[in-house]
Write a protein that binds this DNA or RNA. Sequence first.
DNA 1: GCTCCTATCGAAAACGCTTTCGTTTTAAGT
DNA 2: ACTTAAAACGAAAGCGTTTTCGATAGGAGC
Lengths: 336, 336
Amino acid sequence: MTTIYDIAKKTGYSITTVSKVLNDYPNVSEKAKAKVLAAVEELGYTPNSSARTLATNKSWMIGVVFAEHLGVGMAHPFFSEVIESFKKHVELYNYDLLFVSRKMGLKEETYRHLKHRGVDGVVVVQSLGDDALDFTEFNMPTVFIDMPEKGAHAVYSDNKQGSTLAVDYLYGLGHRKIAHITGAQTMYTAVERAKGFELAMEKHNLSIPSKYIVDGGYYSYEGGREAMFRLLSLTDRPTAVFVSGDEMALGAIKVIKEAGLRVPEDISVIGFDDIPLAKHVDPPLTTVKQDKELIGHQSAALLLDEINELGKNRNGKVIPVQLIKRQSCMSVDHMW
Amino acid sequence: MTTIYDIAKKTGYSITTVSKVLNDYPNVSEKAKAKVLAAVEELGYTPNSSARTLATNKSWMIGVVFAEHLGVGMAHPFFSEVIESFKKHVELYNYDLLFVSRKMGLKEETYRHLKHRGVDGVVVVQSLGDDALDFTEFNMPTVFIDMPEKGAHAVYSDNKQGSTLAVDYLYGLGHRKIAHITGAQTMYTAVERAKGFELAMEKHNLSIPSKYIVDGGYYSYEGGREAMFRLLSLTDRPTAVFVSGDEMALGAIKVIKEAGLRVPEDISVIGFDDIPLAKHVDPPLTTVKQDKELIGHQSAALLLDEINELGKNRNGKVIPVQLIKRQSCMSVDHMW
DNA sequence: GCTCCTATCGAAAACGCTTTCGTTTTAAGT
DNA sequence: ACTTAAAACGAAAGCGTTTTCGATAGGAGC
């Protein structure tokens, strides 16, 4: 490996001077600059980031703590898009992303590991509330995605508002018997969406039979299937169902079709997330779109500010959602 | 930050001894071990990985070079699954993954950056052949995914065989007029699949009208749409089309439906990849499945071996593919 | 020619750890 | 009690940088 010493020897300057030209210090002559740069090029020198980090206490790495419950890891349809957006943004400022292995349930381990690596900041993407790292003793710039955390930066969608959008839309279409397939109530997003659903229903003076609210688990396709199955077995079936996640919605639609019914002619379905496949399925899924791009961007901006100690007050930043009307919902007037 | 010196001071031992217990050296007394470990716990000491890397010349990081052409980055439906599998495997050996920002087209930059970071190995996941890093002067353990590279480890699917499987199946169903929507011929996988298609057709003594082979670009949904559009405009339409990628296949199916035709009743479609949504679309997509799990696992194993200098002969490792029969294909006898 | 700046440079310490190799301590053997 | 081997320990060098602060050189001003 070629080091700063090799450059020094070759140019006749000291390592101090070499280091200075490499770091754009002002007081170094043009002549020295030229000679050093030439030598760097000729020897194919590359600075050693470990040494630099050791000396400066700055690693230019951002740790990514990734924990989801579908078990698909970074292939997660929603999180992966958010992280990609996050990555694109921090890259502009020369940060690399370090995916640390998170042994689920061992928060202490993860915490130490991040310290060990000396990352400049951390972004944690995870759904479960109770499983969260204990942030308070985690003295490091951090931003949470998809979940608020007291005293910490966090970026997440306006989940309640999303539910309102969905219910209002369904109501406008003439639906009165609206069911809700929720996510597991251990997840912040799932609770919020459920709350929003109830609030919106209340607003329209619609009652919610207890059987109309069914837990679909961790946003999985299978969970959606099972939940919808139960809904279909009801004597007084809903005419529309608002599902807390797109994957679950797809599972639900599948079950409806298998039962010989049609979407939206027999039952309207509306999802949440707007994952990439949503527009490709049949029928194209009407859903509440989360702005993954913005979420990633905002969380990156917040984290960068915090790293550079421009951190303002730390709290949650909620991102607006949007109703994407496709073809899985239908006015009751046209149903058969 | 608490260092090894703090532990030394607290326990009365030298930093050498502390370091030794931390690294499980044999010749250190039980007593010393106990005292040091206790102090570590009490002071909440975490070793500094930069210092360690500097001293040992081993970073325990694996660089990930990720370049795809859908523009979705790590949200790529196929690559993300492969990388996830790769990650799961290397994690077992305590490696973390470093995603370096790859400025497309600046291979030299990427190369330097990886050196700079001192990663122990590199996994490059990218489709384009001509854009590949110049591996020869890249003196570092490396494994390529989805594309062979002379003199380097590489793991990829048996693309030709996949095409054979598809064509044989279609042939068995009675189809004779089979078209192929290819991927851009700058990509290794696309070329192989196209070759395989021609070979298989030849085997069955089937001629391929030149209009039956149409380029769908970089495996995108839109590309599939356009390609299928051209196919539909033909006077002598194919009864089946083998599409080089699932996303493209979905686009193709969409166009077929829009034209008032049905899949598979009017046209059979078969894809390649078996992305997660393949089973959820309507009709469920018959496709050639790539074993993402195995690809990730194998490439991890190869890279780890290379890092530990157990590297055998470096060359491509081809992973078998499998035909997943779902419902987008139909026997000609039942077509209308 | 002398003083005093300013511009340029370099010696050396520091960052936190590993590892070699010599020294000391302990235990075993007689 | 003495020798010897083995076990336990530590001094110091080294890994490749950055950064402080003092030294030197050259020129301007008189």
